[in-house]
């Protein structure tokens, strides 16, 4: 619950952080990741994203977005597209 002093990060801020994390994990230039849209495929679409890289991605999201990701949170829908991952990160940031 927001008390007016401790606002959740804005959608734009989460979007920017998430793109930076993906650029670090995938080893892609910022410009390439800037071109990702909601339908851009991630896990299962990008060879750079194997299970170990996804584990690193989730851990970076936890550290940089200050959220906790549980086993049950991780599913195909959340990881399949950039839009799915962003929606998940936003929902978690509001909870946090």
């Amino acid at each position: 619950m927001s008390n007016g002093h401790d606002l959740a990060p804005s959608r734009a801020a989460i979007d920017a952080k998430l793109r930076k994390i993906l650029s670090d994990v995938l080893g892609l230039a910022a410009d390439d990741v800037a071109a990702f849209d909601a339908d851009t495929g991630l896990f299962g679409h990008l060879p750079e994203l194997d299970s170990m890289a996804v584990a690193g991605l989730l851990t970076e999201m936890e550290d940089q977005l200050d959220i906790i990701i549980e086993d049950d949170d991780v599913d195909g829908e959340m990881l399949e597209t950039y839009g799915g991952l962003l929606a998940f990160a936003e929902a978690k940031a509001v909870e946090a």
């Binding site: 299970s51 170990m52 584990a55 690193g56 989730l58 851990t59 086993d71 991780v74 599913d75 195909g76």
Partner: peptide, 21 residues
């Protein structure tokens, strides 16, 4: 350990035999 355990749970879920941390 956390990173490696997480990779294992993700791979297990993907393979259709989920494991818990």
């Amino acid at each position: 350990l956390r990173g490696m355990i997480r990779a294992r749970t993700i791979a297990a879920k993907e393979a259709g035999r989920p494991e818990k941390t």
